[in-house]
Every structure is written in C-alpha cells, then in structure tokens.
Amino acid sequence: MIMIEDVHFAYDGIYTALQGVSLQIEKGECVAIMGTNGAGKTTLVKHMNGLLRPQHGRVIVDGADAKNLSIAELSRIVGLVWQNPDHQLFLDSVRKEIEFGLKNLGFTPEETDAQCTQTLKNLGLEGLAERSPFALSGGERKRVALATVLATEPQVLALDEPTIGQDAQQKELLARMLMDLNDRGRTVIVVTHDIEFVIEHFPRTIAMAEGRIVADGSTSSVLSNEDVLERCSLTLPQLTVAARALHKAFPQVSERLTLLSELEDAVSGILGGTQ
C-alpha cells in the first residue's frame, strides 16, 4: 500500500531530517512509528500524503509513484492528522470542520450528515458540535482534528501523535474506532510516544532515531530489545518492568507477560495459598 525507498529529506536543504528511510506497509496493516524527538517521524508521515516531497528516493502509494500525484489526489488515499491540531482547524464550528472534508471528497449530504454524527459520537464530541474549535480544551481540539479525517474513512490513516491530551477513556474510544476501521480493511499508521497504546493495539512497530529506521518488526520484539530502546529513547512497557521484577524474585513467572490479566494470574498463583 505504501512503499518508501531510500528517502532523504533536509528542511531548507540544510536541516537533515531523513537519511535514507525505506519501508513497506501492506494494505490492512496496523503500524506504530516510535522514536527519539527529532528522529524524523513527522517528516516521514508528511511524505505519505505529499505535504513533503523526497529530495532523494521514492514514495509509492497504492502502486503509483507519489511524484505523479498532487497533494489533493494523495490526500484522498492517505488521510493525515497533524501532530499540532492548530495547523489543521480553521472553520468556526466543529460540525463544519468535519463536514468540510466529507463534502470535499464528494460524500452526499445524507452521508455527510450520518458520518459526522457517528464520528462525533465515537470520539466523545457529541456536545461540542456547534462550538468553535478555538474555544475548546487541548484534548478536545485534538479529537476534532482526528474526527475530520476519521469521518472520511480513507484507505490509509496516518495519525501523528493521536493520543496527545487524551485521558485513559478517550484513548480507549480512539483505539476502538481505529481497530474498527482496520477490521474494515483500512491501513492504520500512528506516530506515537505512548508505549502502552502501542503494545495494546499495534502488532508492528518501526523505531527511528536520527533520520533512520533502527528497528522494524513485531511490537513485542522491538519493545523488548534493550539496544533499540536505548538508541531510540524508548523505555520498557510498564507491564514488562513488573514481569521482570517478579521474575527475579519468583523465577516461575515469565518475564514476557504483556497483559494485565496475565500478571494478575501470576501474582494470584504466587500468593493464592497464603491468603
């Protein structure tokens, strides 16, 4: 679905951001991109819908070389949500903001209405439809920016830091919506620093540092590799820390537990007899 071949990019020709990035993402995959601040994650996803163009290398989207497609054409395939919602919102009501994208893509008035209502509901924004996006909290603004893209259900969703400003419940709602779109064949790509969000929902992780991909593989293997964690400024998932600490004291507990229920069962197993 998306193929990136040896892409290099430097802002103004001098500030190096990508130094030879290659990756392939198949249709229907769910992929997380993680790594050091300034590693080039945002720069990379902006190449996927043509906001930035490679200075060297190629970007292939749905079989076509992106250089032959306009931003408008690419945006129909790849819906990008920006890291900072301020760069994305410009109308005077939340509803208009969501309808704008739908109308642009040729949805009928009925479809526009239905998608808008459903997306507002899914992201916990029901009460805010008539509000100005400029009079919202930070987390609410981010959800509106997400809604404008999620409502159009593009083939590829590229979301830059979607969990910023979200509480645990909102993250869960967002994950549910993404997994539902994925079940219906959409490719989901997120850039995020949220380790727990990744380990719970994304089977594949790409870890970056200094404009390069350092690791690309199953989330559990990438996020347990100390060398990768060190180079990409990542830390171990909370449950892995707990499992490793328990394993030290009680070798029968596997250090590889990744679910809350597994950890709970392990501790019940240890203490069950003593209560």
């Binding site: 727990e196 909370q238 449950l239 892995t240 820390v241 707990a242 499992a243 490793r244 600490a245 328990l246 030290k248 004291a249 009680f250 809350l260 950890l263 709970e264 501790v267 019940s268 240890i270 203490l271 069950g272 209560q275």
Partner: peptide, 30 residues
Amino acid sequence: KATQVYKRLQAKGIELSRVPLTGEELALLV
C-alpha cells in the same frame, strides 16, 4: 499498571501491605 494489578488482586481478596505505584514496588510487596 502496578496499581491496577493491586486493585484486581484486592477484588479477589488478596491484600498487599500498601498500594504499589511501579512494577518494582509490586514485586517487592508480593
């Protein structure tokens, strides 16, 4: 997560001596 495990154990009748905030602390209390 460590606090969440504590809560689940408590619901099952397993009490730790205090509420853990980290994985290391959870292992210690267990």
